[in-house]
Every structure is written in C-alpha cells, then in structure tokens.
Design a protein around this nucleic acid. Structure first.
Length: 499
RNA sequence: GGGACGUUAGCUCAGCUGGUAGAGCAGCGGACUUUUAAUCCGUUGGUCGCGGGUUCGAUUCCCGCACGUCCCA
C-alpha cells in the first residue's frame, strides 16, 4: 500500500512530531482522560437547528461536544472548525477574544485529525449554521498522521479495508452501512423473539466440521492434544438442542469456510441458523417472507428497493418453483430429459458444461441449475425440491424420494438462504452419511463425514423439524445496496503484507 | 486457478512517440473578525510497488514477482 512503509520518514510526520514535542514542553497533557461530554452534534442540531438566532441568544446554557477535528477555517482572530462525533458534525467558532490566552495558544497548535473538546453557548452564524461558540477548547488526543484529503476523501479500496478506521473517519456512508447492519440484526432478533425462538451459542471449534459441505480450517488444541476444526455450520449442534426439547432455537454467529474469496465470499461470514420443531420447509417459506418484509418495512417503510440498479419487490407471495421446473423454464428442454441420467448428461454437454458420464442425475441437475439458471432469479424466488444427492441432511419428499423437502432463496441471482425439513430418521441419516463417505473416498474433500454421535442423538428421536440458514452478510448487502461483501464486513480478509 | 485493469507526494490524480516528474488539497511561512472544498501571496515535499532485461538513457518498452480491484472457474 502506498506510503505506509515510508511514513516514519515523511516530512509531514516529522513536523507533526516536532509540534507534539512543543505541546508537551508547554506542560499540556496530550492524552487527558477527564473530559465530560454532555452533548452530541445531531442532538444539538435537532434541538436548536430550527430556531432563529434571536431565540438562541436567550439560551444561557453551556453545551459541550467532543470529536475529531475535520476542518479548520482560519480568519485571523476568528476561526471556524468542524468537529465530527459518532453522530455527525457540528461547527465550532473560536475567537481570540472569547477564550483564554492559553486556550487560544493551544488552539493554534491543533491539527486536523486531533480529538478535541469544546464547550460554550450555541448560536447561528449569518449563513444560518448552528455553531458552538467556544468558551473552552481542549485537546483530548493528538493525531500524528495526517488525514486523507478533505474533498476526495479516501477512495483507495485497499487502504479502506486495511485501515478501516480511516475509512470510517473519512466516509460517512461507511458508518451508515454498519449502523444498518446492526439494526438489521437487531430486527432479526426481535422477529425471532416474537416467535418464541431462543438464541443460543454452539461450538465454533468442532472435532468434526459437519452440517454443510465445505472445506474447513484446521487448528490444534494443545492441552487436549487433538485436532479441531473451525465450524462450517452450527447445524448438527442446533438439532441436538431441538432433540433436547428446546424446540425453537436460533444462532447468529460466524462460520468459517476454507474457500476462495470474492465479492460474495469471505472466509469467515455471519450466518443465522434457526430450527423450528413441528414445522415444515413450507412453513419456513412463509416465515422467511414475513422476516424479510418485517426488515424492509422497518428500514424503508416499503417493500420495494433498489439493489445495484435493479428494483427488488418483496411483496408476498414470492415465486416458488422446483429445481427441475426452474431449469425447464429457463432452458427450453423437454421435461423427460431431466428424469433420465444419460439424456441429462447429453443435454448438459450440449450446454457446454463439463459433466462426468457417470455423474448422479441429481448432481447433473444442480450443475445445470447453478451454471445456467441461478443468475436469472432476480426477484425473490424459492427454489424447492433439491436432489437427495446434494442434500445429505434433508428429509426426502414423500412423493418422490429422490428429492428432498428443501428450498434455497434466491434474490438478484444470489443464494441468500437455504432451508429444509430436517431428516430425523437415524437409519436414513446413516445411509446418507455412508453415501457421503463414498464421495469422500472418491476424492470429494467437501463431502460430509460420518457422525456417529449425531446419529445417536437422532436415535433418541428428534421431533419433526424444519431449519434454515440465512447469510447475514448477503442480506445486509441487499438492504444496503452494497456491491461487495467487503463493504458489509468491517475487517474483510486480505492477504498479509510484508512490513 | 485463468483473464483484464491498476500501483506516481500524506490524500485525489495528470504525466503523449523513452531524455532523471506535475497539479489540487494537506503541510510550512505570511495576510485576513461569520467561513463552510473559505480566499489571497509565497513555499517544502518523490527509491514513480519490488526485482531483472533492452537502451547512451526507463515512471514510460519487455519479462518476472508482490499487493489490490473487477470478471470468469
């Protein structure tokens, strides 16, 4: 990254350090901790922003504000400074005649980027801007490094991600995204609590990385002398809790998958998973619609919003379509082709897809779906009836046991949620794990492992249950119109840099 | 993993067919009592991502590497 290695030698830094030495020599604490801040920028603006200057002169009260000095506009004896706190910005007026000599001397030594405190009465300038008239100004923390340019700000994406503090200081929209993220997660919690779900936490470090098909990160516990895996999903633990009688549980937490990084993938990402006893995957489609609508209503007040230039409409009911129907709709293929393994191989090869001649029919369907269909699903769409081969933990459909009672939710061509009626027959579950083991032996590193402990849990009888996982980062991307997952994760994974 | 593009002052960016680098902002000095990208005058600041090669000479052309962005897998 530009500059960072030479920062020690930069002239700007040298000058700044000399200035700091001077302030120190004058006996001023560079990092005091005794300021008591009474007000915030937006609070003062909402209280006094609409009042006229004549009314403000009647107010004798003294207000105080602290934050980062973002601009200094100097006019000889008078100066205007812009102070940014967590809520926004407020201007302060510093006049040589209105503050003590030592305070003014200190003010002249301050730099943009410093953390300061001002207190004084409130007034409006002749341009109508609400301003604190400083009776006191203090330095609360001295900045050594200069801030990026005031007008263009910080745009270099690498610096924005590696030095997120700078991004947050310079780009108010970034702060807004993370306020939104927090609000969305709170709304989800409210929604789940309203429906009597219990929030729980299950292990991040697992002896076996189960509950999904993905490559895990491996770690080692010294005292136990055992290898552990960072979880790829909480699923099997949450279903143990349902078996234990908790019946409605959810967890919002991190999953870790040892895979590539893209605008939609970060190796650690946040997932909400929830399980609801005595419900089916169809119930969860209704619940998912309700949840998204609840969030949109609270955020926007309406169910229509724009994601990257595309108008999204969350008005229920959303389209519900099976995997096979979706392929037929978008690929113009005779239905029979998708029921016959060899015809399906031929068809996918026609489409230019690389498919092994002996590949299971269900896998072929998914390859076609993922390659050719997925990207077309712009408005919210539940894709249902996934092949049993790719759904080792899902309940079989009663009418067609080669498919499962499962759905994935697509919006803007991206998978946002994955849900199914849970497989609670321990014998069938064992058979599915054995099928996965064969795949693992055939070289599929992502295939699920045998989990005898989980099967034993099922043998105690898990109630009929439906469960779902919702990718929180992708959800936040959607609602904040963010193009990259890195824009909704404060510290996205980047390659380490040599210092 | 493959492809395209990028990396020049603290920040945002110019830099043409190769001749040892410019602007704006920031900084520093000065003027200024209501500005808000303040203004005006003056001025400092660069291992042109790193390493090779071609050349009398490379920020510029070629190769490799690093990091990043986007697209594809």
């Amino acid at each position: 990254m530009r500059g960072i290695c030479q920062m020690e030698e930069s002239e700007l830094i040298r000058k700044r350090k000399e200035k700091i030495a001077g302030i120190r020599a004058a006996g001023i604490d560079l990092y005091p901790n005794d300021a008591r801040v009474k007000n915030t920028s937006t609070e003062l603006k909402s209280r006094f922003g609409n009042m006229e200057q004549e009314s403000l002169t009647q107010i004798q009260e003294t207000f105080s504000l602290a934050g980062r000095l973002m601009a200094i506009r100097n006019f000889g004896k008078a100066s205007f400074v812009s102070i940014q706190d967590r809520k926004g910005r407020l201007q302060a007026f510093i006049h040589k005649g209105l503050i003590t000599e030592p305070h003014y001397a200190l003010f002249k030594r301050l730099d943009v980027g410093d953390i300061v405190y001002v207190s004084g009465r409130i007034f409006k300038t002749k341009t109508g801007e609400l301003t604190i008239e400083a009776q006191e100004i203090r330095l609360l923390a001295k900045s050594v490094h200069p801030l990026p340019e005031k007008w263009h700000g910080l745009t270099d994406v690498e610096t924005r991600y590696r030095q997120r503090h700078l991004d947050l200081i310079m780009n108010p929209d970034v702060k807004e995204v993370f306020y939104m993220r927090s609000r969305i997660i709170k709304l989800i919690r409210d929604f789940m609590e309203e429906r009597d779900f219990l929030e729980v936490e299950t292990p991040m470090m697992q002896a076996q990385a189960g509950g999904a098909t993905a490559k895990p990160f491996k770690t080692y516990h010294n005292a136990l002398g055992m290898e552990l895996y960072m979880r790829i999903a909480p699923e099997l633990y949450l279903k143990r809790l349902v078996t234990g009688g908790l019946e409605r549980v959810y967890e919002i937490n991190r999953n870790f998958r040892n895979e590539g990084i893209s605008t939609f993938h970060n190796p650690e990402f946040t997932m909400m998973e929830f399980y609801m006893a005595y419900a089916t995957y169809e119930d969860l489609m209704d619940l998912t619609e309700e949840l998204f609508i609840f969030i949109a209503r609270n955020l926007f007040g309406v169910l229509q919003f724009t994601y990257q230039g595309t108008e999204i409409d969350l008005t229920a009911p959303w389209l519900r379509i099976t995997v096979k129907e979706a392929i037929i709709q978008y690929m113009d293929v005779a239905p029979g082709v998708l029921d016959d393994q060899s015809q399906a191989v031929a068809f996918s090869r026609q489409l230019g897809l690389e498919v092994d001649e002996k590949e299971a029919l269900g896998k072929i369907l998914m390859i076609i779906f993922e390659e050719k269909v997925e990207k077309n699903l712009i408005q919210p769409t539940f894709v249902t009836q996934y092949p049993v081969e790719v759904s080792p933990l899902s309940r079989r459909n009663a009418l067609n046991p080669n498919f499962t009672d499962r759905f994935e939710l697509y919006i803007c061509g991206k998978e946002i949620a994955n849900a199914f009626s849970e497989l609670n027959d321990p014998d069938d579950q064992r058979g599915r794990f054995l099928m996965q083991l064969r795949e693992r032996e055939a070289g599929n590193e992502e295939a699920h492992q045998m989990d005898e402990d989980y099967i034993r849990t099922l043998e105690y009888a898990m109630p009929p249950t439906a469960g779902e996982g919702i990718g929180i980062d992708r959800l936040v991307m959607l609602f904040t119109d963010s193009a990259s997952i890195r824009d909704v994760i404060l510290f996205p994974q980047l390659r380490a840099r040599d210092e």
